[in-house]
């Protein structure tokens, strides 16, 4: 058993951003362990060549490429078959998986099959005194647990957007095509449909995000935030109560259960600032809170605070931004 292997998904035709983040994680584990970093690249079609090149550009030498029509969005069962096949053959010491839609099913299931040590949703990885040490958020983001990974192999999943995409460090790499037999009929789940439901601008990629909470009182409030987002060139997200109430789609949710975002600017409107929400936004460079309660906990996580009713503040802000842009 040697080396670190990252599971690189290109299930949408293009290498996912969280796969690149894993390379940063792998580098943190390298140091004293001095391990080679390889990747299992999964997907289907012409995009895989560019994805492999992207991995080489970021310092991954050896790429095991699995190209199969079933390796597309949401096909965890197929991904599991392919990954198990390659990992059993190459026997890495550590497998790194992005804890995205597919990865959060893949990591525990792969660990079970390999009888591997398992740590999920890691936000930091490192080596201390020769041992692998990882950190993860617990208790709704109130605390940070440090875990020591004692046995090998180990399967570690990394929370998307917790790590930076590393700077390019090109290597001359190799690509080995691995053919995997996947019997569609034998898979216990079948993807019937992928419903894309997203704000025009992806929440996780937007540089400006405006989050709305229960304080908006209903879906109308979100129309106002959409207008502000349009003026600022940003995306709209939400805390959990608006998604639970069906005011906005569930995948707009930001926080522990929802998405982790790291925009340049996050504006929280009518959000109290529960730790489970804050857990998803702490990486934002500037946090602005608009809340009518000066005691709301959100103000202890925000850089700039506006105490007021959003129904006054947000329209005034929209008007001001329009005015400045017109000038």
């Amino acid at each position: 058993m040697t080396g670190i292997c990252i599971i690189a998904g290109a299930l949408d035709g293009k290498l996912s951003r969280s796969s690149l983040e894993l390379i940063g994680g792998a580098r943190m584990l390298q140091g004293p362990v001095g391990q080679e970093v390889a990747a299992v690249l999964l997907g289907h079609g012409p995009g895989l060549a560019e994805a492999a090149a992207d991995l080489h550009r970021h310092g991954v030498g050896r790429v095991y490429r699995c190209d199969h029509p079933l390796l597309t969005a949401g096909q965890t069962d197929a991904v599991l078959v392919a990954v198990e096949h390659v990992v059993r053959r190459t026997r890495p010491e550590v497998v790194l998986i992005a804890a995205d839609t597919v990865g959060r099913e893949l990591a525990p299931r792969l660990a079970y099959r390999l009888r591997a040590a398992l740590a999920t949703e890691c936000v930091e990885l490192g080596v201390e005194d020769g041992a692998i040490v990882v950190r993860r958020q617990v208790y709704g983001g109130r605390a940070l647990a440090t875990l020591v990974v004692r046995t090998r192999p180990a399967v570690l999943s990394v929370k998307p957007h917790a790590l930076d995409v590393p700077q390019p460090a090109p290597v001359a790499g190799t690509v080995e095509d691995v053919s995997v037999a996947i019997d569609a009929g034998a898979l216990p789940t079948r993807v019937r449909e992928v419903l894309r439901e997203q704000a025009e601008l992806g929440l996780e990629d937007a540089q400006i995000v405006i989050g709305g909470g229960r304080g908006l009182g209903g879906p109308e409030g979100f129309a106002l935030l959409a207008e502000l987002a349009k003026q600022l060139g940003g995306a709209v997200g939400a805390s959990r109560p608006p998604t639970d109430a069906g005011w906005v789609p569930v995948n707009w949710q930001i926080g522990q259960t929802g998405k982790t975002i790291r925009p340049a600017l996050y504006i929280a409107v009518g959000i109290s600032g529960a730790t489970q929400h804050i857990a998803g936004v702490t990486g934002s460079r500037t946090i602005v809170a608009i809340n009518r309660d000066p005691e709301a906990p959100i103000f202890s996580s925000a850089h700039l605070g506006i105490v007021g009713d959003y129904r006054e503040v947000v329209p005034a802000l929209i008007a001001k931004v329009k005015e400045l842009k017109g000038a």
Binding site: R190, V191, R192, V194, A245, G246, V250
Partner: peptide, 24 residues
Amino acid sequence: RMADEGFHQLEVRLPAVLSVTSDE
């Protein structure tokens, strides 16, 4: 299933273990 890009509509064979998230 709630997914990064939206939702996945899946057909699942029984027996199954499902984990549940909240919605309306």
